[in-house]
């Protein structure tokens, strides 16, 4: 019997990755990354750009196939080379991208609806109802008919969150969801992330929004040069007197943005 099925409630393992490795040519960009996401928790990936955060997230749903390592969802190991299994797995693992990646030829509603009709096989009417409910949840029901080119960055990212949520994912991977946004638009996306965290969505998010994530994250995972070098609660890593790489990094970011650690 797997560890996951023994555990209950808050401690239930949703997604576990073990010793993920990825190289591009001679560039070893992901080194033995191991982590576990438990039900309802938010883990935050931080670290310098090029540290492997994005590669780790994309390996977690095989958008970038890892060279080695193992992945379990709900205690069931996922083998990336089996196509059917992979498509079913990706439906349960939502992904949010830094540059939104909305489908430009579809309205906000169409963006949220298309996977419901094409992948889930829902009727157009049911899919429309569901898509509208998700757009409402991110506060964009009134913009359902607009196309990506007619939306602001923050609105685009909220549509992409609605698009992922409509698939009822068990876990959400967020790859720097606010990095492409103006400072004024970051807040509206972070508010949605906060609502999701409060509602108990299991998430892992790469971000440079240290102050925001320190309040919500169950754990900070610090990555540098492709490896996870520190992971603990934000309080422990940022404690006064703590001598951690995470703290030094956060101090540098906050020095730039003028926020205290």
């Amino acid at each position: 019997m797997s560890v996951a099925s023994q555990a209950k409630g808050q401690n239930q393992e949703i997604l576990r990755v073990e010793k993920l490795n990825k190289s591009f040519g001679t560039n070893h960009v992901l080194k033995d990354a191991t982590l576990t996401l438990r039900k309802g928790e938010l883990k935050v990936l931080i670290g310098p750009s090029g540290g492997g955060k994005s590669t780790l997230l994309q390996c977690m749903n095989f958008l970038i196939p890892p060279d080695s390592g193992r992945i379990w969802l709900d205690g069931v190991e996922i083998l990336g080379h089996k196509k059917r299994e992979l498509y079913a797995y990706r439906q349960q693992v939502g992904m949010i991208f830094q540059d939104f990646n909305l489908f430009d030829h579809l309205s906000a509603l169409g963006n949220v609806r298309i996977a419901l009709t094409r992948v889930r096989g829902m009727s157009r009417k049911d899919a429309t109802d569901r898509a509208m409910a998700e757009l409402d949840r991110v506060g964009l029901a009134a913009k359902a008919g607009l196309y990506p080119a007619q939306l602001s960055g923050g609105q685009k990212q909220r549509v992409s969150i609605a698009r992922a949520l409509a698939m009822d994912p068990k876990v959400l991977l967020l790859d720097e969801p606010t990095s492409a946004l103006d400072p004024e638009l970051i807040g509206e996306v972070l508010a949605v992330v906060k609502d999701l965290a409060t509602a108990g969505m299991t998430m892992i998010m790469a971000t440079h929004q240290i102050t925001f994530s320190a309040q919500l994250a169950s754990e900070f995972v610090f990555m540098e040069q492709g490896a996870i070098i520190e992971h603990d609660s934000p309080a422990a890593l940022l404690a006064p007197g703590a001598c951690t790489r995470t703290k030094a990094f956060c101090a540098k970011i906050n020095e730039l943005t003028g926020e205290p650690v």
Binding site: L63, K83, A88, M95, N101, M167
Partner: peptide, 14 residues
């Protein structure tokens, strides 16, 4: 943009 294909795959599309 290649990202759209990535997003489609991430939704479970073949």
């Amino acid at each position: 943009p290649a990202g759209q294909l990535k997003a489609a795959r991430a939704l479970g599309m073949t």
